[in-house]
Design a protein around this nucleic acid. Sequence first.
DNA 1: CGGTCGCAGATTGTCTACAATCTTGCTGCT
DNA 2: AGCAGCAAGATTGTAGACAATCTGCGACCG
Lengths: 230, 230
Amino acid sequence: MTSMIRRETMGAQLGGLLRSAILSGEFEPGDAVTETGLALRFGVSRGPMREAMRQLMDEGLLVTVPYTGTRVLQLTSTDIDDIYSMRICLEIFAFEQIWARRDQAFREALLARHHALLSAIDAGDDIRSIDAELDLHGLAYETCANGILLTSWGAIRARLQLYWAAHHRAHGIMGPKRESHDDYVRLALGDSCEQMKDEIRDHMRRGLGKTMAFVASIEAEKAETNRRMT
Amino acid sequence: MTSMIRRETMGAQLGGLLRSAILSGEFEPGDAVTETGLALRFGVSRGPMREAMRQLMDEGLLVTVPYTGTRVLQLTSTDIDDIYSMRICLEIFAFEQIWARRDQAFREALLARHHALLSAIDAGDDIRSIDAELDLHGLAYETCANGILLTSWGAIRARLQLYWAAHHRAHGIMGPKRESHDDYVRLALGDSCEQMKDEIRDHMRRGLGKTMAFVASIEAEKAETNRRMT
DNA sequence: CGGTCGCAGATTGTCTACAATCTTGCTGCT
DNA sequence: AGCAGCAAGATTGTAGACAATCTGCGACCG
């Protein structure tokens, strides 16, 4: 197990693998995960596994309580609300920062990512569609090249991906609509920053509505389970 | 070394101690720190020490390169610029979020923290003044109770504290002025959110100017050293 | 004299074993 | 029957030894 890839520490690679495992639904939100279990699952020792789990804890995908256990992040409606309001703030900030220096490379990258999103939707691959949608939105953050902003976006992105992936598994096909980002891309390449900011607000409001409805259904279901238990 | 405090993991306690050590100037920005050295320094093994260092890496106070070493964050002017623009965005967002639900507890807490700041300034304790100023600003973030926002503020706060503490040691007494937050507190308790937002922008602009001048002097000095070396 | 190869030291990465802590289910008492 | 206390299992926390990797200096060669 010592000779596979180089140039990156084992813990970091494991972090990627574990994130994929969580987002692909191998572990549901609320599931307990253990260091030993995952270490066995990936064929490594607890040390690097611990490092990987710590990384996902920072992203917010895992929550741990000392000496007790670690679980996959559980969805709550207040979290969703916090995330979306925060995301409006940050994405508007990102576009304000980059608006004046959108160059040819930016335009091409945006169109490329939009194309990737459309391809994923046409292929009917919902998991890849979710990834592509977040990649599309991520371009503005990446272009800022602001370390703290990127970290915040990473935390937001991880949570959104977790929610949407769970949503997809629970309710079947429910990826982004094909025309959902036409306005976003058009205005992002346009001349009016104010119009773009309005579009972001609208876009988020729509997303919040859909996600919130899902989380509410999950919470109702859980409350039902709890009631039945007592 | 096993029986000191309970209810909190050793790594977390070490994180606090190490942060204090860095901010108090025991390690200067750019200094190399080693796991073994710090473990010896604090009388623990490398395991918990590693956990503590990882925590500070997440906050941004330490930067590490695999298999090579770890150093205290080095100041750059682009970082300062990023931090302040980000901080304007987030602090305005925080006040927008809490504006309608500022209650009596909030007002009392704000005045209490302002009082603590004034006491620290009057006592001539610059380190405590820096801490108190950041506590004062932190109230808005804490009142939001938004996990991602708090994490972002933590990263910003750690960097600011690092810069200002280094500033203080380099140029002697240079803590916040006694009247520097009168407007901030008055408007935060006032009726106009727009005026408060303008105050935040002004406040940050002033802070950015001072900090930037300091960082520029540091960079000039470092360039001079580099030139002399070659 | 300049450049390149290689070795030694230092540092982080990884592994295994052991200790501290929490949870859970059972047992015995009231 | 219900509850208190305890014991066993599980899980994370901690320790120390060993391996992989990087950096820098010095010797050797052109």
